[in-house]
């Protein structure tokens, strides 16, 4: 505050008469810009230029930076976009990405809502439990992925053959076996020969688990800022718990829920490292590499061979995220009570 005041006072004292020194006078004029300059330069180099360059590359057919350095020129046009869209692989990665988005965002939001309401309701060990629920957020997602992979991984040959020798079926399968008492219920989650569905289930569990802490943090913060008198008023009026949740808690939290859903979708469309965490760079179980590839993975794959198409794919992803976010905002305008 004081600093702001000082600057204002100084400006006032100098501007009417003007400083006698022209250098000081022009410095005053450009002061704000000079202060902003370091940040502006960095943003221009590392954010603005790459965006412009992506746009440029996407318009240059089959652009390849190596060839460009070698002096090659590229035709201008929209061919990169049409090529990318017509790839069967593109449709596949778009499908996987969308599938992960539309499943994990609602599931994780609902779970986070329930957990944060519960966390807010209990008194003993509140801090301790909050810390525990927040732990995944500060843990490296690749490390979590490796632990998850170990939980679902089967070491040794899996069923099917007569001389099967499972050394470890992973915690999840062991639990399934424990509750069903039958090893036939073991599921091939992520190993060679596993089905797409089981792969996706593993990914959903992992992504939801990974997404929970941030959402819980936001929603819990929102819950704690809701005036308790609303609940007392509801109690006096004889409102049931379920009705209190839907008619009071959810509307009161709606700004936070909207925020969590919008950022969830944006993050969901950029899903990549979670899949690397479980399946590695191959983006799929052994023998079926690339099966779980996502939009971001697709872009990364394309960069080396054809930067033009990678740029086009990146812009398409940008467009999709933009549209989804606009839809989200449009819906929240009707449903969110600020």
């Amino acid at each position: 505050m004081n600093a702001v005041k000082d600057v204002k006072v100084k400006n006032k004292s100098k501007s009417p008469g003007g400083s006698k020194n022209p250098i000081v006078r022009s410095f005053d004029k450009w002061k704000a810009w000079i202060y902003l300059l370091p940040a502006i330069i960095l943003l221009l180099i590392f954010t603005v230029w790459p965006i412009i360059n992506t746009l440029r590359m996407s318009m240059l057919v089959n652009y390849n930076p190596m060839k460009a350095v070698g002096g090659a020129t590229f035709k201008f046009g929209f061919e990169n976009f049409t090529k990318v869209v017509s790839y069967p692989k593109f449709k596949q990665v778009l499908g996987t990405t969308m599938l992960l988005c539309v499943t994990t965002v609602p599931i994780s939001t609902m779970l986070a809502l329930i957990i944060s309401v519960c966390l807010n309701a209990i008194k003993p060990f509140k801090r301790f439990l909050q810390t525990i629920f927040f732990l995944p957020y500060v843990t490296n997602s690749i490390a979590i992925g490796m632990v998850f992979a170990a939980m679902f991984n089967i070491v040794g040959s899996f069923l099917g053959s007569s001389n099967e020798a499972i050394q470890s079926a992973g915690i999840i399968n062991n639990m399934l076996g424990f509750f069903t008492g039958n090893k036939d219920f073991y599921i091939n989650w992520i190993n060679a020969g596993s089905s797409y569905t089981s792969n996706i289930i593993v990914m959903i569990i992992y992504i939801v688990w990974n997404a929970l802490p941030f959402k819980i943090l936001i929603l819990l913060g929102g819950l704690q800022s809701v005036n308790k008198q609303y609940y007392e008023a509801a109690k006096v009026d004889g409102t049931s718990r379920v009705r209190t949740f839907w008619r009071i808690t959810v509307p009161m939290l709606s700004p936070m829920i909207a925020y969590v859903v919008i950022t969830g979708f944006i993050g969901g469309f950029k899903e990549y490292s979670s899949i690397v965490g479980i399946f590695g760079d191959s983006m799929g179980p052994a023998g079926d590499a690339g099966r779980l590839n996502t939009m971001v993975g697709f872009i990364y794959d394309a960069i080396d061979s054809n930067a033009g198409r990678a740029s086009a794919a990146a812009l398409i992803l940008f467009g999709i995220i933009l549209i989804v976010t606009l839809i989200n905002l449009w819906v929240s305008k009707k449903r969110v009570h600020y």
């Binding site: 005036n227 609303y230 007392e232 008023a233 006096v236 009570h337």
Partner: peptide
């Protein structure tokens, strides 16, 4: 809720939404 009371809070606690 079973007492049959009406309570007006100091800050009214009207549901804002």
């Amino acid at each position: 809720e079973k007492r049959g009371i009406g309570l007006v809070f100091q800050n009214y606690a009207l549901y804002p939404h």
